[in-house]
Design a binder for these strands. Sequence first.
DNA 1: GTTCATACTTAGGAAGCCTAATAGTTAGGA
DNA 2: TCCTAACTATTAGGCTTCCTAAGTATGAAC
Lengths: 148, 148
Amino acid sequence: MNTERPADALIDLAQEFRDALRQSVYVLRRLDAHAELSSAQLGVLKMALDGGARVGEIARDLGVKVPSATEQIIRLERAGLLRREADPDDSRAVRVLATAEGRAAIELADRRRNERIAAILATLGRDERDAISAALPVFHKINRSITP
Amino acid sequence: MNTERPADALIDLAQEFRDALRQSVYVLRRLDAHAELSSAQLGVLKMALDGGARVGEIARDLGVKVPSATEQIIRLERAGLLRREADPDDSRAVRVLATAEGRAAIELADRRRNERIAAILATLGRDERDAISAALPVFHKINRSITP
DNA sequence: GTTCATACTTAGGAAGCCTAATAGTTAGGA
DNA sequence: TCCTAACTATTAGGCTTCCTAAGTATGAAC
């Protein structure tokens, strides 16, 4: 006998999903712990590659307000990882560009983190990796649905 | 021709996984945004149900250091959502217990968040929900592998 | 050429987390 | 017994990241 209405099953899945979200925060903290670049900084810096980006674009992409992005940008600029310059098309705007050091820092930080995760993924069974692989796009889709 | 060695495929999956982690942080921020209780507080408060928990247990379970747990506990105590009392078995320890208001707050906060997620899950196809469902345990397993 | 909108910065503040130092309690060995 | 080492929690101080509100400068539109 089915005592569970469909709605309840959805709520249960939602609860599990939320638990996974919460865990993700802890995992990301661990991953950031002894790193030279935090995930937040890495996110900003990556936007500054390939022709750079405007401050507002960076903020939008990272899901934060403009002042928060400015703060990170200033910090990274002081560290010599990116530079700011006036946007030639719009003097109100500021273009943010990664320096050579910035690019090197991204490369290093990304590689270290990816290798650490990859080592864990390597211990999984093929079916487990497939499960992750199949879920990531859906995960992405769900996350996009949650707007401010 | 297969130009991709297995190791590269793992690194790629690791990168995608990391992107998902990063997004999770943003999602959780959105979810917390106008909530009466933050996710961090909700986590602490949930540990204080069913006979309560010691400060150290709470910290361990939530993946933070003891002083961080203490801080949350004090905040929640001031809000009247939990109370602290001496552990009868060990006078060094402190037992943390949710009050009736605390239990009500958990119930409300959980319900609101779960309903919001469930509404999004409801828009997915069955195969997409299945993908999420299958991946969550693996996700959990990976997260447990990443230790400080 | 005002006026309104846009882009960013500055200022101030809150939430969370951390380490180091402290106080009190327990437990174990001389 | 008593002394020391280990453990539990709190306090103090500091960092990061985020936010809102207010200010400056530029662009666009009438």
